[in-house]
């Protein structure tokens, strides 16, 4: 059987090589089914990804609803950077950026080291079943919707909720903390919710990296008399360093994505001063208040800055990734 396939296989690769040199039209005809299969996705990406990008032009006009979307670009009045300067000069800009960056950095401080610590702890457990149980349980919240997570947090952190009950039981506080009535708490609540939801799931990548560490390294460390803590400190952590650095850079690249679901679902009027981030702001002004062009302009600002950050982060990550390999 194998000998039968082999000559045919060689033949096929020769055909493939030859097909590269055929004229374009012939190659298109030859690949008509392949191209046909890619076509629905290509049409899709033009409508749902590139048409909205073109639609960003509405941030430069005074868009009035009514009539077909794209033709109304030409009938709407061109206003240049009016909406952008409106955003930068309004007091909102400072507040929105402060909330976005504060939420992101606070989330990063709590939710970045958490999966790493969890992964190392899981890895050190001797009992296989306990290990599996911890993994299964800790991944679970990732698969629960933000609606439910918001519901859970609103309940747990209410005046009569579980958290206040436990804190009072431990005599850490006398009066219940009104978590959702004090704006200053909100960033911390979002950071905790992010950590609670994704800590387990994000530990997977570290666990995979730990699984790739050569066991001989641990054996050598043991021979040198290293205990468990020293093994973590001098074998596991250095081996994870490239992964940690790359994930940190990518996280910094996504700093403007402070979230939408968690803020929108948990905020109330009393904490809006602190809860409003760039995405919720765009939604509120652009769709709820009907200031379409203004919302589009703010969204455009975010897209551009986020794009620059992510591309820079990827560049840096790639560079560091290459260095650590050799």
């Amino acid at each position: 059987m194998k000998t039968q396939i082999l000559p045919k296989f060689q033949n096929a690769t020769r055909i493939e090589k030859k097909s590269k040199k055929l004229p374009l039209i012939k190659r298109v005809i030859e690949q008509k089914y392949l191209l046909l299969m890619a076509l629905p996705a290509i049409i899709w990406v033009f409508i749902f990804s590139y048409a909205p990008m073109y639609g960003l032009y509405m941030g430069f006009v005074d868009y009035k609803p009514g009539g077909p979307f794209f033709s109304s670009f030409f009938t709407s009045e061109f206003v240049g950077f009016k909406w952008f300067s409106y955003f930068f000069e309004s007091g909102d800009f400072f507040r929105i950026m402060r909330n976005t960056l504060a939420t992101s950095f606070l989330s990063l401080i709590i939710s970045f080291p958490a999966p790493l610590i969890l992964a190392i702890a899981i890895n050190e457990v001797n009992n296989r079943y306990f290990k599996k149980t911890v993994q299964t349980v800790s991944y679970l919240p990732h698969f629960i919707s933000w609606v439910i997570v918001a519901n859970i947090f609103l309940t747990l952190l209410s005046a009569e909720g579980l958290v206040n009950n436990i804190l009072q039981g431990l005599h850490l506080i006398d009066e219940p903390i009104l978590f959702f009535q004090e704006g200053k708490n909100f960033w911390g609540i979002i950071a905790s919710a992010n950590t609670w939801k994704d800590m387990g799931f994000n530990s997977i990548i570290y666990l995979a990296a730990i699984a790739g560490i050569n066991p001989n390294m641990y054996e050598a460390a043991k021979v040198d008399g290293a205990n468990r803590f020293q093994q973590i400190l001098y074998v596991t952590l250095p081996a994870l360093k490239p992964t940690i650095v790359i994930l940190l850079i990518l996280a910094l690249g996504g700093i403007l994505n402070a979230g939408f679901d968690q803020q929108y679902l948990m905020q109330n009027d009393m904490v809006l001063e602190y809860s409003d981030v760039i995405d919720t702001y765009t939604y509120r002004y652009g769709l709820q208040n009907g200031m379409f062009s203004y919302g589009a302009a703010v969204g455009f600002f975010k897209s551009i800055v986020a794009f620059i950050l992510v591309v820079t982060a990827n560049r840096v990550a790639k560079k560091i990734g290459d260095n650590s390999l050799f």
């Binding site: 909205p52 639609g55 960003l56 509405m58 765009t282 769709l287 589009a296 897209s303």
Partner: peptide, 11 residues
């Protein structure tokens, strides 16, 4: 890179 919410809604 993406167009953001508002143009997406319009599309």
């Amino acid at each position: 890179f993406g167009g953001g919410l508002i143009p997406y809604y319009m599309v």
